[in-house]
Design a protein around this nucleic acid. Structure first.
Lengths: 123, 123
DNA sequence: ACATTAGTTTATATATTTAGAAACTAATGA
DNA sequence: TCATTAGTTTCTAAATATATAAACTAATGT
């Protein structure tokens, strides 16, 4: 396994590594929710905190994961930090993942029904 | 943090948790490549091994991650295990992620150009 | 200058992921 | 039956991710 510093040095990330990084950033329920909320427009960290019942420090860490990978951006105005999607297409990605999920559940349902049918036929 | 066993027990995953699980499965360069290869149709593990230069055991582990989350399926015929995408839409998800990536890179390019312009203006 | 608000950073303990080696299994063929 | 092929599983050590607490910063108001 390569060390993080080494990775940063080598610069030459493959397209697969970059894709994987984006997926890693999406790989947490809180971060998925953040993206969903932000897809309705710019929000402050406080706005997000009202919806997501998590400690402030924890949310802040998740936001920095999203920032690091470049899918959200920050604008500071006085005391408030406004967060927004920096890549609008990320919305599509999320909704496709959701669709995949729904198909998956449907798939499992179908399989279960088949199994039940077979079991009935055996009696 | 909840333990894996505990998670399995509680059954009641939120939609966000399920989405995050799918993203976790996509969050590795080898697994992304596997999905890309499989999007061209069914392949054996050996086929995959020829393209991806990784130890067999390692690939096998990655395949089981993809299987566990239900995005690929296996069909066994004699000595060979044929792998295929069980959710065709996963292809769209991957290609959207790739698009996101390309937009991100374009974004960064644009920002760099702006920075250079500003620096030049300051001289 | 001091307190408050909004948020970030750092430290730490625990959990999860990963790669690689070695042992294993299941199907085929000699 | 024994060897071979194709692949999986298990073990271990190292890397990474996560949650929580505590300390910190930066802007505003008094």
């Amino acid at each position: 396994m390569r060390k993080r510093a080494e990775k940063r040095l080598s610069q030459t990330k493959t397209i697969y590594e970059m894709q994987a990084e984006i997926c890693s950033a999406l790989a947490h329920p809180i971060r998925i929710q953040v993206l969903e909320i932000l897809s309705n427009g710019e929000k402050t960290v406080g706005d997000l905190l009202e919806v997501l019942q998590v400690p402030k420090a924890n949310l802040s860490q998740h936001l920095s994961v999203l920032k690091d990978v470049g899918v959200i951006q920050t604008r500071k105005e006085g005391l408030y930090h406004y967060m927004s999607l920096s890549i609008p297409k990320i919305k599509d990605a999320c909704s496709i993942i959701r669709t995949v999920l729904i198909e998956k559940v449907a798939n499992e349902e179908k399989k279960n029904i088949e199994i039940i049918r077979e079991l009935k036929a055996q009696r």
